[in-house]
Amino acid sequence: MSHMQMTTKERVLCVLKYLFLALCVFVALFPIIWVIMSSFKTNAEILSNGVALPKTPSLTGYRNALTISPILNYFGHSIIITTVSTVLNVLFLAMAAYVFARCRFRGRDVLYFILSLAMVIPMTALLHPVYSVIQALGLYDTKTGLILVYTALNLPMSLLILRGTFLSIPRALEEAAYVDGAGFVRTFFQIMLPCAKGGLTSAAVLAFLQSWNEFTFALVLTSGQDARTLPLSLSYFTAQFSFDYPAMFAAVTIAVIPSIIVFAVFQEQVVSSLTAGSVKE
C-alpha cells in the first residue's frame, strides 16, 4: 500500500515538475517564436488574431523590412563593429587576465577589484561621460568610437572569465616552456592562449552577444548612416505612421538570428567555462 502511495505521489511530483519546466520554456521561447511566426503574417492577420498561425505565410514582411530601413547596411556595420570589438576585447583582456592571474605586483588586488567593480555600475550611468569622451576624441558617429566603447563595456566579464581560466592552468606548463627556451611573450601566445581556448571562446561569445544587442550607446554615439548598428534599424518601424508589424518582426528575426547561431554553436563551452575556474585554486 505504502509503496503504491509513494509512487503515485512521486508520479504527481514528476508531472508537476515537468509542467513547471514546460511553463519556463514556454515563457522563455514564446516571444521569440511569436515574433518569428508573426513575421510571416500580414498586418491584418496580426491585428485580428495575434496568436494564430499565418494563413498563407508570405515574405512580404521581409521585403518591406529591407525597403523601409537600411537594415542590410546596419547589419554590415554591426558585423564589423561587433567582430572587431570582440577580438580586441578578448585579445587585450587575455593579456590583462594572464598578468592578474600570474604576476605579483603591488596593488594588483585593488586594481582587479576596481576593474571588476565596473560590472555593478549601470550602463546608463556611463552614458554621459562616455559621450563626452567620444565627442572629445572626435569619434562621434564613427565605427571606431563604438568599437572602443564596446571593447571596454565587456571588460569586467571577460576579465573575470579569463582570469579564472588562467588560474586553472597549471603553472608547470609555463615553467616547462621557460625551461624549453621560450620567453614571456612566446609562452603567453604559444602555450597559454591555446590552453585557455575554452575561456577565450566563452568570453568572446558573451562579448559578441553583448555588443550585437547593444542599443543605448549605439543610439547616443551615432547620428548618421555611417556607424548605426542593427538594433537601431528597429526604430524605423515604430517611428513610421503606418505600423508595419510584419516588417518589424522580420527585422527583429534578422537581428536575432546571428546571436542564436553563435550561442547555439558555443553554448556548451560558455556554460562550462562560466563555472570552471571559479573553483580551482
Binding site: 608547470a172 615553467e175 616547462a176 616552456a177 591555446p194
Partner: peptide
C-alpha cells in the same frame, strides 16, 4: 615535472 607539464 611531477605532473609532466606536456603542452596539451
Amino acid at each position: 615535472f611531477q605532473n609532466y607539464a606536456l603542452y596539451p
